[in-house]
Structures are given as C-alpha cells and as structure tokens.
Design a protein around this nucleic acid. Structure first.
Lengths: 186, 186
DNA sequence: GTCTATAAGATGATAGAC
DNA sequence: GTCTATCATCTTATAGAC
C-alpha cells in the first residue's frame, strides 16, 4: 500500500515532488509509520527502483519466452510504455528519476543507470536478431538504433503527458514501428 | 544575472529543485532582492520559459534564413540540443518543465505546451519540404515523424545526461539523421 | 507496528528600515 | 533596490509512549 502510493506519486510528481506526508495522508496513516519501514527517503526510493527493475525484467523475459518474431517483440515492448501512460498519465519511473538525477542519492543514480543499460542491451539484441531474420530494417549499429528506440519512448511519454494526449504517444510509436518493420502492413 | 543563474539551476535540477535561496547564495545577494523583481516563483518561472521560447524561435528563424536544404536544417536543429547538453549537462528547459508538469502553475503549463506545439510544427514543415525536395526520406505523415524527431531529442538528452555520456547523445542523433537522410554519406 | 510530539532545516513570501 | 527580520508552512527524521 505504501509502495503503490509512493510509486504512483513518484511517477507523476518526481522524486522531489513526493513526500512522506503526501503518502501518509493518501492512505490514512502517519509519516512515522512509513519511517518504520523505510527509515530514510532514499531507502524507499531505492526499494521502488529495484523492485521496478525486477518487474520490468520479468516482463522482458515473458516477451522473450512467448514471442519469436523480433518485430512483434518490439511492439509488445512498446505496449509496456503505452500501458504505463494509460494508468493515470504516469511516466516511466526511470525517466522520472533521470530528470531529478543531480539531486538524487548516489545509490539510486546507480540503479537508474543500470536500468537504462539493461533495456538498451535487450533492445540491441532484439534489433540484431530482427535484422538478421529480416523482420526489421535499419542501417548502422544495432546499439545506436537501440538508443534511438529507447529515447523515442521516453521522450514520447514526456511530450504526450504534458499535452495530455495519449493519442500523441500512440502516433509516435506507430511511426517508430513503421520505420523499423519490413512488412508495412497492419 | 538572476535570470542566468535561475535558468541554469532549473535546467539541471528542475522547477521544484531550484530555490530563491540557491540563486541568492550563488550570486551573492539575498532572497528578498529576487522577490523585488519576481514577487512569486511562478513569475520567475514564466519569464524564463517565455524568454527561452523567444530565443529558441530566433534560432529557428536563423536556420530558416541561412539554410536551404532540409537535411542541413535538421542537422543544425539537432546541434541546438547538443550545445545545450554540452553547456554543463543541461536539459532542454521544456523537457525539464514537462516532467514537473503536475506540480506546475497553470500559466507555465500553457507556455510549455505551446513550446512543444511550435517545435513540432516547425519540424513538420521542414520534413514535408525535405521529402518533397528529395533530401529526406520517411514513410507516413510528416506530423507523426516530427513528433518522433522531437521525442528522440528529448529522450536522448535525458538518457545521455544520466549516463553522463555526451557521446551517447551524439550517437543517437547521428543514427536519427542517418535514418532520415537520403544521402548516406558524410 | 502505529501513534504523538518534536526537532532542525528549507521553502516561498512579506513588512519595513536604510 | 537591497537589506534585516520574520512568517507560516513543508520537509525529512527521531525519541518514546501505547
């Protein structure tokens, strides 16, 4: 309950925009109770990002297990971001923390950096296999293309959220996938 | 002096991460002096974004005046973002404010929304003309491709900043431009 | 485990002297 | 215009009763 509320707050207001007070009020307890579980704010923050990374990794494993085609993997991957935005205009936790980076405790910075590297690595792999198999097309190194894909998702979420227009994000993703897919259809 | 310091702070720490106190200490005055020019924080914030938009628009006019080729225009446009990141790991002001959107005063939200729309409109125009003239290539509506380009820049800045790796951002941009340019060379 | 009480500091903001 | 002094409020955090 504390975790869900904290996650929701941090995803909409950022690390410096959420406080123990807001969490406590929202779930009807006192701030001291939160300090019992997470003595310092950075403890709560670190737990949230570690947990988030773990669940995100699970999602990637599910995609790897259930889907063969790289183009479909990519689409399913983008769906994760669409769903996050759809659930109350939330940003990716990683993107949110990335913005507050200079004010963040070092332990959390490490986690966020690792998160980005993990995702870009996964994307690199999918893009490499997809181009080999012929379902994806792009020029240049898969590493660089992976960075572009991730940047589109984070930046697209950001702009769609401020314009308060989830359709905006879907257009961005459709355009991105259309550029990468060899089959123009769907 | 107040403005430069405030802009620098807001571009690195976000709207909620910069305070009158920090500005005052950094330039050797008292917070009351800042309140003399900008009674409320939102006054300072609004001035900064309006001024930023105006200067950004000037840059776009210079590009339109000095450069004919759409591909070159696009490259010059991305240079604006590279330069911002190069100047002390700063984020685009717009992207920074976009993250704090739910905690922002309404007047400022309006300005940020207008900024995104202006840029996407300019990009749409450049992409349209570039495809017609044959120097740029992409499928689908220029409006959607414009959104992708802007998303790549904002998201790319964000990730490069947290990885503390400006080379990362240059790779992202090179990959983006390579995808859009008809001439593969350079 | 959850509460009350409280601390020490930061924050945006104002009144009034100089 | 810039300062001192002061404010009410919010922040993270702790000690100790129940």
């Amino acid at each position: 309950m504390i975790l869900n509320t904290a996650l929701s707050l941090i995803q909409s207001k950022g690390y410096n925009g959420f406080s123990y007070r807001t969490i406590a009020e929202r779930i009807g307890i006192k701030t001291a109770s939160i300090h019992y579980y997470f003595p310092r704010k950075s403890d709560l923050g670190k737990f949230l990002i570690v947990d988030y990374k773990s669940r995100f990794k699970d999602e990637l494993h599910h995609i790897d297990r259930d889907i063969d085609d790289a183009s479909m993997k990519l689409q399913q991957f983008t769906n994760l971001f669409i769903q996050t935005l759809a659930r109350g205009n939330r940003m990716c936790l990683c993107g949110m923390l990335a913005i507050d980076i200079v004010t963040l405790p070092p332990e959390i910075v490490e986690e966020v950096m690792g998160f980005i590297r993990d995702i870009e690595q996964w994307l690199t792999h999918v893009l490499t296999r997809g181009r080999e198999a012929g379902s994806l097309k792009f020029d240049g190194p898969p590493e660089d293309q992976a960075k572009v894909v991730f940047a589109v998702l984070e930046g697209g979420m950001m702009t769609a959220r401020i314009l308060n227009d989830s359709h905006h994000f879907e257009q961005v993703i459709r355009q991105l996938l259309a550029t990468l897919n060899t089959s123009t259809g769907r």
